[in-house]
Design a binder for these strands. Sequence first.
DNA 1: ATCAGCACTCACAAATAATGAGTGCTAACA
DNA 2: TGTTAGCACTCATTATTTGTGAGTGCTGAT
Lengths: 346, 346
Amino acid sequence: MHLNERKIRILEAIVNDYIETAEPIGSRTIAKKYDLGISSATIRNEMSDLEELGLIVQPHTSSGRVPSSKGYRLYVDRLMNRRELTKEQSDFLQNIISENINQIDYLMKQTAKALSAMTKYTTVVSEPKTKKTSIKHIQLVPLDEKSIAAVIVTENKEIKNHIIKLEAVPETDALNKISNIINNILKKYPTEQIMEDISIELDQELGGCEEIIKKVFSTVFDAVKDNDEVDFYTSGVNNILDFPEFSDIEKAKGIFRALEEKQILIDILDRNKDCAENQIQILIGDENNTELLKECSIIKTKYTVGNAVGTIGIIGPTRMDYAQTVAVLNAIVKNINDVIKALSGG
Amino acid sequence: MHLNERKIRILEAIVNDYIETAEPIGSRTIAKKYDLGISSATIRNEMSDLEELGLIVQPHTSSGRVPSSKGYRLYVDRLMNRRELTKEQSDFLQNIISENINQIDYLMKQTAKALSAMTKYTTVVSEPKTKKTSIKHIQLVPLDEKSIAAVIVTENKEIKNHIIKLEAVPETDALNKISNIINNILKKYPTEQIMEDISIELDQELGGCEEIIKKVFSTVFDAVKDNDEVDFYTSGVNNILDFPEFSDIEKAKGIFRALEEKQILIDILDRNKDCAENQIQILIGDENNTELLKECSIIKTKYTVGNAVGTIGIIGPTRMDYAQTVAVLNAIVKNINDVIKALSGG
DNA sequence: ATCAGCACTCACAAATAATGAGTGCTAACA
DNA sequence: TGTTAGCACTCATTATTTGTGAGTGCTGAT
């Protein structure tokens, strides 16, 4: 059966209408609402074909049709027209994102907030991560009589603090000296090697601070190791409840549960290693392979900070407004890249 | 009308039953289920009195009774028996809370998680705050060619990082020297005074680093100023959906909206300045003065870290299990105090 | 005082009917 | 041969009716 132009126009009408109304749509409605120049009976015949092609489905006999995953796929790949944001919309993004952002995590938070506010969907922004974190600089700072903080700067400019307990805390000057020794070691050997065998390093002249240095290294490495846990920010989770398809409380609960499970989100967001820079990926319905999210679609893209890569994902019902969301995502990624350039460049 | 012992026993039965079943309870049910030695007709008469006293209400004529806010109040103040946790329960808390916690925010997160997991209610833990933050120590750390981080240690041992952009970043040794100068200034004058007039300080010998120091101070003070924004962690928000009283999606939405509004939560949690250490406060129903949360109760208590004070709050339906929740909260506060002692003492 | 008994109320559930938006199929028409 | 008017049929949704049962308040006997 051939998928002629007319069938495609009808499919388009169905998708657009369903995105708008969330109600199954019938032949008569299409005939009245969209000026296709054919009667409802003809549309009925074509719809029957579209169903046979697996592009639309009937929730039950004698109800209107609804796009299937395959139907959305076709729509997204071939029919969806690139949309531009209005002036107000891009101004809104501009304002939120550029406003005095001086730290990555704040940028992530703001991005998530802006996206969920604009799209009315749920947004997840994952922290930029490299495969292996290598440490660039360590500075020890006194906290109180019995503890110091190790401030760690990683190669991609994350800053992490870790508290270390000591019998007695040296003077600030001494701490600076120890920091220096540590940094020299870091400069000389790659992080992994030190992690493998700390003792190699301890041959050097350490000015009688072996114990502290050992403690610092072991704490820091523990921190780096458990660091493959990805952090992310979620915003607009409650928007879920505004969609009629999730007004069934059990469905809503399921989605909430999924959004609560870090691992589920990580798996989905991470599935873009194959994907090119600045490209937007769309997972429709069960394409995300998560039972709890099988009625959701996810639109996502990578963003990079140095050689670290994070992901921005927008989660909505399968009938989400793909064109609009893609436009918003495109716009925000551009803004983010500017901010990041400013952050790391100057 | 006198509130005799029998009336009180009946009220207690009503409250206990309603906490358990969430269903209005009638005289016959009480007579059958609770061995009060009186007939349903007598109970009926007494219930009529209890209603007149405002302690119970009827959702509609010819339905069972439900405790009113006043009824819960009486229950909480006079009837509720102190409960002890079972061995398993306190072990559970012990495990979650004591497990290698070395930073306040991690402790907060774990606490929120543990409480919501145990109680099945929603938990909010607010960050310990002092009225005025005074800075104890500042350490500058190189980040890249154009930026440094100011690591700030406050009097109550919070650690904050702030990125500062510079034309050119000095050597590590020079940064250490500048850090020293800054710390000397901090030692000499109270933070507020420096904040009021930075220029006072700049008379001193600054070794030609006026510009950097000025920049550091202004960044840091900005940070300290906007710091009166309280951070907090929320956990178990989705538990809301498990209560039949919130199975109406509009009600659930309202509560979610309230829990999303930082200011609402802050207002409620902060309302314990008058309250003694280690005391548990209970806000029943509309006592929290928040329209959206008028069908919720809040059980909360303060905890202190140094001279900073945070709050732990548990939010549930008005028919929440007060006795159990108070017991859990008591137990966890004890655990937390131990951890905090370990954190700051040694 | 207590309580069995009785008439009454009213939310809720089940059963029934009415509605209407949708379908597929057929036969006539351009 | 593609298009379409017409018709019988389906079925979710809504409204209506009819129990049912857990509850009440009141009364009069113990």
